[in-house]
Design a protein around this nucleic acid. Sequence first.
DNA 1: TGTGCGTTGAAATC
DNA 2: GATTTCAACGCACA
Length: 478
Amino acid sequence: MRISHCLPKTSFSSPIMSSGSASLMWFRKGLRIHDNPALEYASKGAKFVYPVFVVDPHYMEPDPTAFSPGSSRAGLNRIRFLLESLVDLDLSLKKLGSRLLVFKGEPSEILIRCLQEWDVNKLCFEYDTDPYYQALDMKVKDYASTAGIEVFSPVSHTLFNPADIIQKNGGKPPLTYQSFLKLAGQPSWASSPLPVSLSSLPPVGDVGNFEISEVPTVEELGYKGYGQEELSPFRGGESEALKKLRESINDKEWVANFEKPKGDPSAYLTPATTVLSPYLKFGCLSSRYFYQCLTDVYNNVKKHTAPPVSLVGQLLWRDFFYTVAFGTPNFDRMKGNRICKQIPWSNDDELLAAWREARTGYPWIDAIMVQLRKWGWMHHLARHCVACFLTRGDMFVHWEKGRDVFDRLLIDSDWAINNGNWLWLSCSSFFYQYNRIYSPVSFGKKYDPNGNYIRHFLPVLKGMLKLHPLYVFFFGLV
DNA sequence: TGTGCGTTGAAATC
DNA sequence: GATTTCAACGCACA
């Protein structure tokens, strides 16, 4: 690791550690060495550390019935990004005298078996607010506590602990960005940075009868016949994340002046090439480390932009959505979701398929959808464009359907952020003006008759043209 | 209960 | 085609 900056302290106080013991470090997100309080605690005073990752077949293995290459839950691009991240993590662990132990199966069953077979007295993993992990972690924690194993599960995926913000707000999550900012304030770790640089890790203990495999390749998972050139150009892993971060941070002027477009949206082309979101999603890059790097830059320039439009503002948006998602039951559904407007969406699967398969007939929309399918990543404004088109244009398709397509195809798809944005862009929550069901002004009107919306995205779309020859084809149709 | 406001949007106008 | 105007809904806070 070439981390020269100071790294943040975890906001959790560490329990008294035992000595001469073994720890199990369970990786899920947080696929990194830097700013990883769970890994740090696992290695403190431990004789052995077992770094474990469980390949869940539901997430990883081919599902031939899905509409695109991939498993039942994730597209091939994100699966490959994850595998690359794991390979990189394994390499980094090896440099520190350890390695990644890769298992395959239902994660809670595997974890419990590991805890039964190995002489482990500490179980460490990053706290996760997603419902999938809330349920999974409950099972594993329950077993650990009955077995007398200490569990350390710090919040290190986000800048703030969503539970803290919700508590400060009287038990409910704030529903506007501004109120979130007020409640959040400065992160507790921001003023007292702690340099953390793991120089070595305790060795892996005896794995007993377990068969430990290397990180599988996509071919080994059963995906055949997909060449490199057909897939996303973005490589996964912490090393790549830190390299990309450094490239972005080096341009201090750009970092300080980063702002949402106000007349010159072409300024948004630069962040389109940094692509840090997938690394934040898997935790290859710590959002807290990113935050500190940005504050360092801000401290060394005369003036800089501020939330919501600044780069730090973007990290705070991420925390905002994590907080609302954590504090809202059924956040990923319309029904039973108290913050979601109840709308009688159309149920036309053919319209959905046309959108998904880039054959709407609108070249802008289709070009973006091709990029989504091919690269698994697209500019955030482009996402807004196609999401509004699907839910608020003539299609009027349920946001949950569009959400599912993004969730499958985006390499950076993140449960809280993806659902939050679809709620927003479909006028179901956070943003309510001109809801076409309830507003006689806009109801039934054709989507964007003046082309205001598309015009807003034009510079971004033209920028894409430079990036990939495929767009020539689509733009040629205009 | 009223008022302010939002990483707004569409119609009116230049 | 580009710019300006103003209508709009529900959260936040008094």
